[in-house]
Design a binder for these strands. Structure first.
Length: 890
RNA sequence: GGGCGGAUAGCUCAGUUGGGAGAGCGGCGGCCUUACAAGCCGUAGGUCACAGGUUCGAGCCCUGUUCCGCCUACCA
C-alpha cells in the first residue's frame, strides 16, 4: 500500500520546521489592511527583547495563537501584531553585565557609546525570543513586527508626552520616590516588590535641648536618624504634652530639632513618638511639608551616606552605617532597647536590591483623570475582563491610583522630550528638538538626561504599533483590538495603563476583551524561577516532546482562574495524544487512498450515523468553548472525541467495513465517513496543534493547500446536512453498553481475549430486538463473538454469565469455562450496588414533599430511573438464583 | 491590616444558571488483536475541608471555622 511508508510513531522534529516555513512563505499569517471580512486583531504582549522564552510566554502565546488560527478558520481577517519591548532597566542590566565581563563600566565609555552597544546587542540577540515564538508556532504577521524603540513608536511616545504635559497631566517635581541604589534610578510604586523580613525596631532616646529627659522614638531604620528634622507626637497624647514647643538635641549630630505635634502619629504604636526624616520616608515627607521642615538627605543615590550625614558616617554604605550608628548610640547611652520586628520592605523588581525611599526631582503622570475614563470603559463593558473576578482588582487599583513616576535615571530608553535653557532656565517640552530657547533665544539648550519608564511606551502599544499618530488604514480596520491575552501579573503595569492611554488618545478602548490567564507553576505549585531551579524550559520540552504536545498540554490545563501546575508527566500524556491522532490518521490513510465519494446517507450504518452526529455536536461545542475563552473545555472536548469516540469506537467498528469484509457499500460508507471525521477533526484541532494537523492534512487525499485555509466544519457548506441524529446516538449507546457488558464478563471471568464467545440476548422489546439483529456484525466484531442470538424473554440458559443492560438480558455461554462461584460473587456485587441505588430513589419517591414540590419532569425522571433499576434488579436476582442452584448441584 | 482565590479519587484537576459524583495520570487484572505497548480491554478507589443554615433536594446558594496560596497596604 502506498502509505506504508508513514512512520509508526509521530516524529515532531522532522515536521515542525518544514510547516512553519511553509506558512510564512505562503503569507498565511498576513493580515489584510482592508477587506470585507470581519476583522479580528490581537497585539502581542511584547516580550523583553533580551529575554528568553519561559513557560509563561508559552502559555500566553499558545492561547493567542489558538484564537488567531481559530478565527482564521472562521473566515475572519486576522491581525496578530508582534513585537518586542526595549525593557529599559532589564536590558541595560544585561548589557552592563556583559560589558563587565570585559572589565568595562558604562561610565567609562559614556552614554552615546553605551546606547550604541545596547543597539548592537539587540541586533545580535534580539531575534532570539522571536525565533522562540516561531518555534511555538505563533502565527503572527511578522512583516509588521514592531519594537518599542522604533522611530514610529518613539514618535508616538514623544507626542503623548508633550500632549499630556500641555494638558497638565505630566508634571515635574521634588518628591519621595523609590530609588534603587544598584540600578541607580527611580522606580514606580509598582516596580517595588514588598517582602516580609525579620528585622529590628530600635528605641532611641532623644534628650531635650534643655537637658531634660526627652522622647524615645522607635525606628526600624536607625541610620536615617542622621537626617531627622523633627520629632512628632500626637497633639492629644497626655504623655508628651509637656514637650510642647521644646527642642531635642539629635544624638550623634548635636543638631537641634523641634518637637512638633501632628495627628498622623499613632499613639498606640511604638513609643508614640515619631522621628521625622522628610528626605527618606514618604510619610515624613508629607508631615515635613505641612510643618515646613527642612529635608536633610543623608543617603545618596549610590546608597552611600552623604556629607550631610556627618564626617564620621559620610561614605559609609547604608547598611554599614546602620551598624555603626547603632554602635555609637549604644556607646553614648542613647539606645534604649532593640526588639525583634517582622515587617515588609521593598525590593527592586529588576534586581532585588533593597529600595531606598529618597527625595528626588522626577517626572510624574497625573493619573487620576486618566483612570476615570479607563474605569468607566470597564464599568460600561466597552472592555470586558475575563474572568470577571479581575474586574474588582482593576477597579480597586484604579480608584486608589497614585501618580506615576515615569522618569528613569538610566541611559537605555526613550529620552524625555524636555530641554532646559542653560541661560534662562526655561523648560521646553516639544516633540522635535527645539533650535533655540523660546524665552530668551539662546541656543544653549540641554535635553533632560532621563529616559522614560518602559511601560510608558508599552502603554501605547495597541495603537502605536498600528502607525499612530498617523491615521492609518490599519488603525481604522483593527483598532480597537478584539482581545488582549495576558497574565494577571501585569494587569496594573500594562493593561491598566493601556486602558488609560487608549481611552485618552484614541477616544476608544484598546481592546474589547481582556482575557487574563493563569500563571504556570511547577508541579508543586511553586512559581518557576531560576533561583529555585524549578524552571521547565519550553525549548527543552519542545525538543523532547514536540511543540504540539506542549501547546495542547497548556491549553488543556488553562482553566479559568486557576494556575497551571506543570510537569513533564502531563506533557508526556498529551504527546501520547498527538501520537494517537497520528496513528488514527495512519489507519485511515491505509484505506483512504483517494478522496472518497461524498457521504451517501442511504448506505450509512449505525456507527457511521452516530459518529457524524457526534462530530456535529463537538464542532459546535469546541467553537462555543473557544468563543468563551474556555480553552481547557475545548481541548478536552476534542481529546475525548478523537481518542475515546473516533479511535476507540468508530475506527474499531469500521475496520471490517474498511477491509471490505462487509461488502462494497459498507466499505464506501466507512471510507467517506472516516475521511470526513479525520478531515474535520484536523480542522478542529489545528488551532491547538498546528504542526501535526498540517502534516496529516497534506497526507490526506482530497485536501488542497494548508489546513490554515480550511473552513471551520460548522461553517462549511453541507454541514447542516450532517444530521444531529439523536436516534443513532441512543442506539449506539445501547450497542456500546452491550459490548461493554460482554467485555466486562470476559475480563471479570478471566476469559482469554482470543476466545470467541457465544451470546444470547433476551428481550421482549421488539425495537431492541431488531436493533441488535441489524447490528449483529458490529457487536460480534467488537465483543469478539462466535454467535449472537436474539430471543424473547424467557428462561435463562444455564452455564452462562449474565449482564443486564436496559431491558436486555445478555447471556454469555461459558460451557466448561464458567466458574459458578465466581459468577455468583460477581452478580452479588452488582446486586448490592443496585440495591443501594434503589434505596436512594425510593427515599425520594416516598417523600411527600418531593412529590408535591419538585418539578414534574424531575419526578418522572426519578420514577423511571427507579423502575429501571427495579427491573434490572429483578433480572439479576433471577440469574443469581439460577447460578446458585447450579453451583449447589455441582 | 484589607481583599481575592482554593480545599472533590493516591496525585493533578474538571464540574456554566441546585436534580442519581467526572477526566487524565498512577494502582490492580488481562492482552504483542495486522493504526498505535507513546497501545488495547476490564477494574478498584470519593462523608465533595469542617460545622451550621436555606431547600422536597446542596459539590454548587448563605453564615461561621480551620488550613493553604496570591494580591494589596506608609503604622514608625
Amino acid at each position: 500500500m502506498e502509505n506504508d511508508t508513514i512512520n509508526k510513531g509521530y516524529t515532531p522534529e522532522a515536521v515542525e520546521a518544514k510547516w512553519y516555513e511553509f506558512w510564512e512563505q505562503n503569507g498565511l499569517f498576513a493580515a489584510s489592511e482592508e477587506s470585507g471580512r470581519k476583522p479580528f486583531s490581537i497585539v502581542i504582549p511584547p516580550p523583553n527583547v533580551t529575554g528568553i522564552l519561559h513557560m509563561g510566554h508559552s502559555l500566553n502565546i499558545t492561547l493567542q495563537d489558538i484564537l488567531c488560527r481559530y478565527r482564521r478558520l472562521r473566515g475572519d481577517n486576522v491581525l496578530w501584531m508582534p513585537g518586542t519591548d526595549h525593557a529599559g532597566i532589564a536590558t541595560q542590566n544585561v548589557v552592563e553585565r556583559n560589558l563587565a565581563t570585559q572589565g568595562v563600566d558604562r561610565h567609562q565609555i559614556g552614554r552615546e557609546k553605551f546606547v550604541e552597544a545596547v543597539w548592537e546587542w539587540r541586533r545580535k540577540y534580539g531575534d532570539a525570543i522571536i525565533n522562540q515564538l516561531k518555534r511555538l508556532g505563533a502565527s503572527c504577521d511578522w512583516a509588521r513586527e514592531r519594537f518599542t524603540m522604533d522611530d514610529g513608536l518613539s514618535r508616538a511616545v514623544r507626542k503623548v508626552f508633550v500632549e499630556l504635559y500641555e494638558a497638565g497631566l505630566i508634571y515635574r517635581g521634588n518628591y519621595i520616590i523609590n530609588w534603587c541604589p544598584r540600578c541607580q534610578t527611580a522606580l514606580a510604586e509598582l516596580e517595588v516588590e514588598h517582602e516580609e523580613h525579620n528585622g529590628h525596631i530600635y528605641h532611641i532616646h532623644y534628650p531635650l535641648t534643655d537637658g531634660g529627659e526627652g522622647p524615645v522614638v522607635a525606628t526600624t531604620r536607625p541610620e536615617t536618624m542622621l537626617g531627622d528634622t523633627a520629632v512628632a507626637v500626637h497633639p492629644e497624647d497626655d504623655r508628651y504634652r509637656h514637650f510642647n514647643g521644646k527642642y531635642v538635641t539629635l544624638p550623634l549630630t548635636g543638631r537641634e530639632i523641634p518637637i512638633i505635634s501632628d495627628p498622623y502619629v499613632d499613639v498606640s504604636f511604638g513609643t508614640g513618638a515619631l522621628k521625622i526624616t522628610p528626605a527618606h520616608d514618604p510619610n515624613d515627607f508629607e508631615i515635613g511639608k505641612i510643618h515646613s521642615l527642612p529635608s536633610v538627605k543623608v543617603i545618596g543615590e549610590d546608597g552611600l551616606m552623604t556629607e550631610e550625614a556627618g564626617d564620621k558616617y559620610k561614605g559609609l554604605d547604608r547598611f554599614e552605617c546602620r551598624r555603626v550608628v547603632v554602635e555609637d548610640l549604644k556607646n553614648h547611652g542613647f539606645l534604649q532597647k532593640i526588639e525583634d520586628y517582622r515587617h515588609s520592605i521593598g525590593h527592586c523588581y529588576r534586581c532585588q536590591t533593597l529600595v531606598e525611599p529618597n527625595l528626588s526631582k522626577q517626572w510624574f503622570v497625573k493619573t487620576r483623570p486618566l483612570a476615570e475614563k479607563a474605569v468607566e470603559a470597564v464599568k460600561d463593558s466597552e472592555t470586558k475582563i475575563v474572568p470577571e473576578k479581575w474586574k474588582n482588582d482593576y477597579f480597586k487599583w484604579m480608584e486608589n491610583i497614585r501618580d506615576w513616576c515615569i522618569s528613569r535615571q538610566i541611559w537605555w530608553g526613550h529620552p524625555i522630550p524636555a530641554w532646559k535653557c542653560a541661560d534662562c532656565d526655561e523648560l521646553v517640552v516639544a516633540v522635535e528638538e527645539p533650535k533655540k530657547c523660546p524665552a530668551c533665544g539662546s541656543r544653549r539648550l540641554e535635553q533632560d538626561p532621563d529616559v522614560l519608564d518602559t511601560w510608558f511606551s508599552s502603554a501605547l502599544w495597541p495603537f502605536s504599533t498600528m502607525g499612530w499618530p498617523d491615521q492609518t488604514r490599519l488603525l481604522k480596520t483593527f483598532y480597537p483590538t478584539s482581545v488582549l491575552v495576558t497574565g494577571f501579573d501585569i494587569l496594573f503595569f500594562w493593561v491598566a495603563r493601556m486602558m488609560m492611554m487608549g481611552c485618552h488618545f484614541m477616544n476608544d478602548v484598546p481592546f474589547k476583551d481582556v482575557y487574563v490567564h493563569a500563571l504556570v507553576r511547577d508541579e508543586n505549585g511553586k512559581k518557576m524561577s531560576k533561583s529555585s531551579g524549578n524552571v521547565i524550559d519550553p525549548m527543552v520540552i519542545i525538543e523532547k516532546y514536540g511543540t504540539d504536545a506542549l501547546r495542547f498540554t497548556l491549553a488543556a490545563f488553562a482553566a479559568q482562574g486557576r494556575d497551571i501546575k506543570l510537569s513533564e508527566k502531563r506533557i508526556e500524556g498529551y504527546r501520547n495524544f498527538i501520537n494517537k491522532l497520528w496513528n488514527a490518521a495512519r489507519l485511515t490513510l491505509m484505506h483512504v487512498t483517494d478522496k472518497p465519494a461524498d457521504i451517501d446517507p442511504s448506505i450509512l450504518g449505525l456507527a457511521d450515523r452516530w459518529m457524524l452526529s457526534r462530530l456535529k455536536k463537538v464542532a459546535y461545542r469546541v467553537a462555543e468553548a473557544i468563543d468563551g475563552y474556555h480553552f481547557n473545555t475545548a481541548a478536552n472536548e476534542i481529546y475525548q472525541f478523537v481518542w475515546h469516540e473516533f479511535c476507540d469506537w468508530y475506527l474499531e467498528a469500521a475496520k471490517p467495513a474498511l477491509y471490505g469484509k462487509w461488502g462494497e457499500k459498507r466499505k464506501q460508507a466507512a471510507l467517506s465517513v472516516s475521511w470526513r471525521i479525520l478531515h474535520d477533526t484536523l480542522i478542529l484541532l489545528h488551532p491547538f496543534i498546528p504542526f501535526v494537523t498540517e502534516e496529516i492534512w497534506h497526507l490526506l487525499p482530497g485536501t488542497e493547500g494548508s489546513v490554515m485555509k480550511a473552513v471551520y466544519p460548522s461553517d462549511a457548506p453541507g454541514f447542516e446536512q450532517i444530521a444531529h441524529d439523536s436516534a443513532a446516538e441512543a442506539d449506539m449507546a445501547l450497542v456500546m453498553d452491550i459490548i461493554t457488558g460482554i467485555r466486562n464478563i470476559r475480563g471479570e471471568m478471566n476469559i482469554a481475549p482470543s476466545l470467541a464467545l457465544e451470546v444470547l440476548i433476551q428481550t421482549d422489546n421488539t425495537a431492541h430486538q431488531s436493533l441488535i439483529k441489524n447490528n449483529q456484525a458490529l457487536i460480534g466484531n467488537l465483543a469478539r463473538l462466535n454467535s449472537l442470538n436474539v430471543a424473547s424473554a424467557g428462561e435463562k440458559p444455564k452455564a452462562t454469565a449474565t449482564a443486564i443492560v436496559d431491558d436486555l438480558v445478555i447471556s454469555v455461554f461459558l460451557e466448561g469455562v464458567i466458574d459458578f462461584a465466581q459468577e455468583s460473587q460477581r452478580l452479588e456485587k452488582e446486586i448490592a450496588k443496585l440495591d443501594k441505588e434503589i434505596q436512594a430513589f425510593l427515599k425520594k419517591l416516598e417523600n411527600n414533599d418531593f412529590i408535591n414540590k419538585a418539578p414534574a419532569a424531575v419526578i418522572d425522571k426519578t420514577r423511571s430511573q427507579y423502575d429501571e433499576c427495579v427491573e434490572k434488579l429483578k433480572k439479576l436476582k433471577q440469574n443469581f438464583d439460577t447460578i446458585r442452584s447450579i453451583s449447589e448441584f455441582q
